[in-house]
Nucleic acid binder design. Structure first.
Lengths: 255, 255
DNA sequence: CGAGTATTTGATCCTGATCAAGAACAGTGG
DNA sequence: CCACTGTTCTTGATCAGGATCAAATACTCG
């Protein structure tokens, strides 16, 4: 079943009333990130300190006029956070999908920019000043802990990326990427996993420190090994997850 | 009055209780990280939740028996946080010097290990369960903000590392490394900067995703260009910081 | 001073980048 | 629906930066 079809059914079944987390991004945020049923007062406090933002493929998310640390919540779509070396080379520092959060320092400090991924035209985000958000969750230990959890997860992912970029081969990098994407946005159906990647080959390359040619070659290699199948430009079926994990050279403790 | 007498008097005046931040790592932590004069009650609260740890070159910091997120403070020495690919390849994910902090997820989750740097035999650390530390600073907005600052700084550094590992050449990597070390542990004297690196070539390589041979070659190249001078194994004098920054290909916004 | 470890330097190799061309696809308008 | 156009992806040929292998030299510490 394609992603589009799924979305259509979902939209039909769920009413327009914004009480539902599907429709109200703030409620969605509370459900997914804070993982706690919040009162309507704290919901309105969230709404007071957060701002809705739309991002496109071309336009960066100029998150805020101010120069503060910001916590971004991806309520719809998927974004990439990009850093540069000179004007030519670029490195994708993080992907964030629906329900993920993205932590940004004061932009004057570290100038990373966010864009919508290649196959998506628009993404909806929620931007919270970090201090405000943390202050507004201070009464609920569960919510604070959930935020803390996200901070450490972001750091862990960045460190895992460092290992990947510093010490893995092209094959291992792509396999790691596919395993990670399978875990984050894959649809499991029995033994096989279906992936609909919202990013282009260039974006995959820019996140792995490789060129598009190498990405393409490694994909065909995995295809020839019967580990994956590709149909669309974006669709990948993982046929042999065990082998893929072996190729990924993941740390044994990381399941 | 002789020197000995002074010392004797000093020793007599100061009780064994280490009020001074040089001597009491907890006070040192409060001074450097929390950047606020804390009351003696909150100091004792810190002492209650923190544990002292010693790390050597050989032995990893088995931080805690428990499996919690931990905030490590380096009160003496310098440590590295290491990740692995298989048994052979290793990647240094972060260096932390005196006064720095190191954020660790629950070890079962992500199994990075900390070691003292090559030229150091022993390092003294303070380990705080993350939640406890945050709870104990909750009343002081300044202290909470200082912790938050450290979180974002750690993430920024990890992202800068990703750009370096993914998109920079060996020359650029080493130059970036030297600039970063100069800023963190360099001693400025007029136009020149003196560096005493506590890590071996291997450790430099393992943090930059390069081999020791490449590190050595790039160092001699920079030496031939009259940008640096090396004396010891560990001592480096930066003669031309401007050129070094150019070679580092740092983002223009990062001063 | 001597033993063991680190570092430097040289020669060669290999992975992934670069250059180049063709194929597949998406979007547009007729 | 199809031709047209620009973009993205794939594949091939060649190149180069850094890895690997090997040996000599410089430190460090007992």
């Amino acid at each position: 079943m394609t992603r589009r079809a799924l979305t259509a059914i979902g939209a039909a079944m769920i009413p327009t009333s914004p009480r539902n987390s599907r429709d109200d991004p703030f409620r969605h945020f509370a459900d997914v990130v804070l993982a706690s049923d919040i009162s309507s007062t704290s919901l309105s406090r969230l709404q007071a300190c957060g701002r809705r933002i739309r991002v496109t493929r071309k336009k960066m998310a100029n998150v805020d006029g101010s120069d503060r640390r910001t916590i971004i919540f991806v309520s719809e779509g998927a974004v990439k956070l990009v850093g540069h070396v000179g004007a030519e080379r670029e490195q994708i520092v993080a992907f964030a999908f629906r329900g993920d959060i993205l932590l940004l320092s004061a932009p004057s400090h570290k100038p990373y920019t966010g864009y919508a991924l290649h196959s998506l035209n628009k993404c909806s985000l929620l931007a919270f000043p970090a201090t405000d958000l943390i202050m507004s969750t201070i009464e609920s230990p569960d919510a604070s802990d959930a935020i803390l959890e996200r901070f450490f997860a972001a750091l862990d992912r960045a460190r895992e990326t460092a290992i990947l970029l510093g010490r893995k081969t092209a094959r291992e990098k792509l396999a790691s990427f596919l395993v990670s994407m399978a875990e984050r946005i894959g649809h499991i159906d029995g033994d096989t996993i279906y992936l609909d990647l919202p990013m282009s080959r260039r974006e995959i390359g820019d996140s792995l420190g490789l060129t598009i040619e190498t990405i393409s070659r490694q994909l065909t290699a995995l295809r020839n090994l019967k580990i994956i199948k590709t149909t669309d430009r974006s669709k990948i079926v993982i046929l042999d997850m065990a082998s893929l994990r072996d190729f990924a050279a993941l740390d044994p403790c990381v399941s």
